[in-house]
Every structure is written in C-alpha cells, then in structure tokens.
Nucleic acid binder design. Structure first.
Length: 293
DNA sequence: GGATCTTGACCGAAACC
DNA sequence: GGTTTCGGTCAAGATCC
C-alpha cells in the first residue's frame, strides 16, 4: 500500500525523515549548549542532546531487531480491510476441525520476562486459546475512561519458555496522564524508557523489516566488546529485565498508510550493565557533526 | 469502599459442509 | 445458507488493598 505522500511526493523514507528530525533537534540543542557553556542550564541541554543521540541510536538499532525465535513461526498477511491475519503463531498450533485463522487488528507483539510494561492495565477477560497450553489474558488500559484510551493487550505465557510472556498490544494509548502519575513518566504513565514512542503519525517506521544490522549512526561505531549482541536491541533501562519494546504509535495509522509489516515482534533483550549508558551513548562532538551534516 | 481479578455467558466472524 | 468453532468482550460476583 502506498502512503498518501508517496502519491504526490514520491517514495517516502520515514526512517530517514525521523532521523533527520532528530538530528536537527540534536544540532539545535548542541548549539544551544555551546551558547550556554558554564551555566547550569548547559547541563540540561547536555541531557537533551544525549537523549536525542539515544533516540537516533535506537532508531538505527530498530533495523537490527530480529523477529526472534518466532520469526519463522509468524506468517502474516494484510488483507484489504486492513486486518492482519496471522496463521499459526506457533508450529504446534494446529487448526481445529474448522481451522479458524487467527485474525488480529494491527498490533505489536513483544516477548518479555515480565508482564509489567510500565502501563497500568485492567484485566477484563481470560480465555483458553486453541492450540496453546496456557490461557490468554485480556487487558485494557486503566485510563480507558479518561479520554477514551483504547489501548489493549493480550498476555500469554510463551509456549517454548514458560518464564516468558508473549504480549500483544492492540491500539494506542490516547490517555493523557501527567508525569507524576504513579511515579511514572510522561505519556500515559510510562514509567521506564524501554519504549520509544513515535506518536506522530507523520512518520512511520518499520522495525521488523529485514534490515542490515547496525545500518548506520552511533551504534555502528560501538565497540566490538559492547554488551549488545547483533540480534538484540539495547534496553535503555538496565533495571528493567524485560523484553525491549518499540512503540511506533497508532498502529492503524501506521499500517494504514504504509505497506509495512503490521506486526512487530521484538525478542528478549539481556539486561545491560549499569555503565552502558556512557559507553554507548557518549556524545562526541566530532561524531555529532559528522552525523549532523 | 474502590480497584482489581475471575469466570461463565454471549456475540460476531470465519471456516466448514 | 445453515451450522460449528473460535477469539474477543461483557458483566456479575469474588477478592484484595
């Protein structure tokens, strides 16, 4: 499916567009920091620059994310109605007599050791699913009644590893909660940074495509002995021992406009040492201007 | 007492015949 | 086109804090 912009402006590279915007922001912050040298404000500017650098790095790393062990198990097809049909999530998921296919709305799937992703969920149901040993739990956002947040998720114990959870996210958090809510930060009470949120629907990127490993940017300059493997993505918060999730914003917006994989599957990421931050994302001015240009 | 969880019933959609 | 099967949701009661 071609994006609307593609019709008038030619092929759009959303990843590049996001990257360009982040670079612009980083450049502006760096210049501001230069102006504010020796002031307390410069410290905060440094944080902004560092944050943008991380975003760029994670964006690049998004292309690295392997679909994980289940990649070969998941076959998906986007039909004309925009629904995603997933056939046999697991090899041992046999069809019943009537072999009903599993049909999901555009969603993201995450494998995690913990069910906790920083959001507050209300459980509204549980169901035994044919072909799966464990029951599936259904959750909706606790703030559903707030501004009508329609975010939902399904949680199921992984068939191949009972210590892992397969979490399927459907819809987007539209609730607006302040950063103090439950000690969590920013949008809808997200309490950790293991999620990147590109809320704007102007740009959409696909993290599940078979992109080259560490295509460009900061991560490509990482030390070879860094604690990140080729097929995994960094968890920005080493204290959170769970799968790393990328929130690409409104799934329907995202998949409705672009012919992209509607389902991302981000495999588990090993926790990192506490000093990864400086090692991975140290800001180098020469490097920055190299990327910034 | 409010929030959250559990669980059976119900509904709509897809597959089968 | 009717029937069957299934996944998803609802809602009432139970439990927890």
């Amino acid at each position: 499916m071609a994006s609307p912009c593609e019709n008038c402006c030619g092929p759009l590279d959303p990843k590049k567009a996001i990257r360009d915007e982040l670079m612009r922001g980083r450049l502006a912050a760096a210049l501001l920091g230069n102006k504010l040298k020796d002031t307390e404000i410069a410290h905060f500017v440094d944080q902004i620059v560092g944050s943008l650098s991380k975003s760029l790095a994670l964006l690049d790393a998004a292309n690295v994310v392997a679909v994980g062990s289940s990649s070969s198990d998941v076959r998906e097809d986007q039909n004309s109605a925009g629904k995603v049909e997933i056939e046999n999530l697991a090899e041992d998921c046999k069809r019943g007599k009537h072999g009903k296919r599993i049909v999901l709305s555009p969603c993201r799937q995450v494998k995690s050791r913990s069910k906790d992703d920083g959001y507050k969920w209300n459980k509204y149901g549980e169901k035994a699913i044919k072909g799966f040993t464990h029951r599936r739990s259904y959750f909706c956002c606790s703030h559903k009644g707030d501004p009508g947040c329609n975010a939902k998720r399904h949680v199921q114990i992984a068939e191949d590893d009972n210590s892992m959870f397969i979490i399927t996210y459907i819809g987007q958090h539209t609730c607006k909660r302040d950063a103090t809510d439950q000690g969590q930060s920013s949008h809808c009470g997200l309490k950790n940074q293991s999620m990147i949120s590109f809320e704007s629907s102007d740009y959409n990127i696909n993290v599940a495509q078979n992109s080259p490993i560490l295509t460009s940017g900061i991560l490509s300059d990482m030390k070879p002995d860094s604690p990140m493997s080729e097929n995994t993505m960094m968890n920005p918060n080493p204290e959170i021992d769970e799968g790393f999730m990328l929130n690409m914003g409104m799934a329907s917006d995202y998949y409705g406009d672009l012919d992209l994989d509607p389902l991302e599957y981000v495999d588990e990421v090993p926790p990192l040492s506490n000093d990864y931050d400086d090692e991975m994302f140290s800001f180098d001015e020469d490097e920055f201007f190299l990327f910034g240009n």
